[in-house]
Amino acid sequence: MITEPMELLNPVRIVLVNTSHPGNVGGVARAMKNMGLSDLRLVAPQDYPSAEATARASGADDLLADAQVVDDLDEALAGCRLVLGTSARQRTLRWPELDPRQAAARLLEAVPTGPVAVLFGRERTGLTNEELDRCQALIHIPANPEYSSLNLAAAVQVLSYELRMAALAHAPASAPAPTGGELPASHEELERLYAHLEETLLLLEFLDPDNPRHLMRRLRRLFAKADPTINEVNILRGILTQAAKGPPEHSGKP
């Protein structure tokens, strides 16, 4: 149970995907510790552990020692109730978008229901569309449009600062659960729903098996806006299971 404002930051995960420069990992750890965050997850870093990461951490090497290094993104997001991804690029298919302040408020509102995560992509190319599919919304830092490229550690610093300010305001502590008391579906439950949905749509010949990604990406965006609860996901999967069986034999329908 969360009793102090800064405890709101404990369930917030910072997830770095395929980081190429170890110094950036150290810089991120320093930015996190400055603002009171402690849960760092590294997905397939290219050069880690590293003495350069420790040097750049400048006293936050305890965060590096505790950082979890995993092979794939789903493992890093296990158990999360809300996942937001960062992106500096506009995408063909638009995700719901938040600025850092809005993102911090939404993350801390979800904290009472379980862990939450912020994804940061590769230094040069960011997150892929497939990785963004795991997110309920994107975070866009409104930097100078003439020079909007932020160093990875600087981007984490911006988000960490907004999270700390939101925690200090302590507003989410008394806010009602965003789902009316029911737990929102976790990352794993949503991924199982999407897999079940794609399988059923292929069976019903509604989905083009040669190009399923575009429609499935739109459906992911639809469900991300709805923010379904565990019970709602179970209802949807029950409908999908029944739809896959076809109409009952006694219905009289062809």
Rank of each mutant, 00 (worst) to 15 (best):
N211M: 09
S58I: 07
V158M: 04
R41C: 00
R220P: 09
A76R: 01
L93Q: 15
V15R: 02
L183F: 03
L40T: 09
K253H: 12
R237T: 09
E131L: 04
L119D: 07
P176R: 05
A167V: 13
G181P: 04
K33S: 06
L152S: 05
L64H: 05
T125P: 01
L138M: 14
E7V: 02
W95F: 15
G238N: 14
H170W: 14
Y161T: 03
N211K: 12
T92Y: 13
L84D: 08
R124C: 09
G27M: 01
S38F: 04
Q90H: 15
L42C: 11
C80D: 02
P178D: 10
L64D: 07
Y147I: 08
L40N: 09
L204R: 08
T128L: 05
M32I: 00
R220E: 14
R91S: 14
R220Y: 07
S38C: 06
Y161V: 02
L240P: 13
F120E: 01
S50W: 12
L201N: 08
K225H: 12
A243G: 02
T92G: 15
T200I: 05
A55K: 09
A51W: 08
D227L: 10
R213P: 04
V111T: 02
R237N: 12
T86C: 06
A60L: 03
G23D: 07
A31L: 03
T125C: 05
S251M: 10
K225P: 05
T86F: 10
L207T: 09
A117V: 11
T128R: 00
P254D: 11
L215V: 13
V156D: 00
S251A: 15
P49T: 15
S50D: 14
L16R: 11
A195F: 02
E198Y: 12
L201C: 11
K33R: 04
A88L: 08
A153L: 01
I139V: 13
D72P: 07
P176I: 03
K33C: 02
A103H: 13
P172E: 07
I235T: 10
R91M: 13
I141T: 10
Q46C: 14
A171D: 14
P115Y: 00
E182R: 03
I14M: 05
I2E: 07
P145H: 15
G85P: 06
Q68A: 05
L127D: 04
E130D: 10
H140T: 15
L40Y: 05
E7Y: 04
T3S: 15
E52Q: 09
I139F: 06
R106I: 14
L201H: 08
G252W: 06
D71H: 12
R30C: 02
P172S: 12
L16I: 07
T128W: 00
L207F: 15
K245F: 03
R221D: 14
H250C: 02
L8I: 04
E109A: 15
P178N: 08
E162H: 09
N24M: 06
T54H: 07
Q242V: 13
L93W: 15
S38D: 10
E131C: 04
V15D: 01
N151V: 12
V156E: 00
A177P: 02
L138I: 15
D210Y: 07
L42Q: 07
V118K: 06
A44G: 06
L98D: 11
A104M: 06
V17W: 01
T128F: 00
S20P: 10
I2C: 11
A143T: 11
L204K: 12
Q242L: 12
E191H: 12
E75Y: 03
